Simulated assay, not measured.
Amino acid sequence: MKYAALTGISPSVIAELKSGKARTLELSSAHNIITLTEATPGECLFLTSVNEEDLSPGDPGIMVDLLALNISMKRIELTGPTYFEERERMSARIKVQFRGTTIARDVEGRKWGDPTKVEIIRSACYRAG
């Protein structure tokens, strides 16, 4: 089974998620937001600190349960004495909870605009929670 993969996640965030508490993350990387457009709450996600372009079979990561997902656009207005500038920033807020550690077996979605998905090696040991 293929799982959506979020890449480039800070090792400290992954370590905190391993404590077992549900956490909310805000992601602004375009490739992660594209991947999340096909995810729905209740699914499992693969999170890794490896960058998207470097992700390959054998890379470690964690599996998390996606509890909540919100993708939104924020408007930022900057004004100065001679200009008015408007910017937009898309971000995704997700609430996730640790399920277990795993390793990527196969990676797909290398083309720009495609969601990143991985097949994982199932763990023989599970965390009770």
Rank of each mutant, 00 (worst) to 15 (best):
D106M: 05
R105P: 04
S56Q: 15
I62Q: 10
L36P: 06
Q97A: 14
G109R: 03
R127Y: 02
A128D: 06
D59M: 13
A22K: 11
V118E: 00
D65E: 06
T101Q: 11
K18V: 10
G58S: 14
T24C: 01
G20E: 02
Y83A: 13
S123E: 09
E85A: 12
S29G: 07
V50G: 03
A22E: 02
N32E: 04
L69F: 10
A22H: 02
E85L: 09
N70E: 15
N32C: 02
T24Q: 10
G113W: 00
R89C: 13
S91C: 01
K2Q: 06
S49C: 12
R87G: 01
A124M: 12
E77R: 08
M1P: 14
H31G: 03
E43T: 03
A124Q: 08
S123K: 08
Q97L: 13
S10H: 08
T40V: 15
G8R: 01
T82Q: 12
V13N: 13
N51W: 06
M73F: 09
L25Q: 04
A5F: 00
R110F: 01
E88P: 07
R89T: 12
K74V: 13
P57K: 12
P60R: 14
F98I: 07
V118R: 03
I71C: 08
S29N: 10
R110G: 09
G8C: 00
C44R: 10
F84W: 11
C44I: 12
K117H: 05
K2P: 12
M1G: 08
R105G: 04
R110W: 10
P11S: 05
G80S: 04
S19M: 14
S49Q: 14
S91T: 03
R110T: 06
L6P: 01
E26Y: 00
H31I: 08
F46E: 07
P57G: 04
P115W: 00
R110S: 10
A124W: 09
R127N: 06
I94D: 09
E88G: 14
I120K: 07
L69C: 11
T40G: 12
T102I: 09
K95W: 08
E52P: 09
I120M: 03
A104D: 03
K117I: 05
V50C: 05
F98R: 09
V64M: 04
L55A: 06
R110Q: 11
L78N: 12
A30V: 12
A92T: 00
R99D: 02
G61V: 07
G80V: 02
I34Q: 10
R127A: 02
N70F: 13
S19W: 09
I103H: 13
S72K: 14
D106Y: 05
T37I: 02
E88N: 15
L78E: 14
K117S: 08
T79S: 07
A5K: 04
R23E: 10
S91R: 14
R110H: 11
I94N: 11
G129Y: 02
V13P: 13
R87V: 05
W112Q: 15
P115A: 10
M73Y: 11
G113C: 04
Q97V: 15
W112D: 15
V118F: 07
Y3P: 12
A104F: 10
P60C: 04
E86I: 14
H31W: 09
I9M: 10
V96T: 11
V50P: 07
E86G: 04
G58K: 15
K21H: 00
A30H: 02
A30T: 07
G80R: 06
R99W: 03
I9G: 05
S91A: 01
R105K: 13
T7W: 00
Y83G: 00
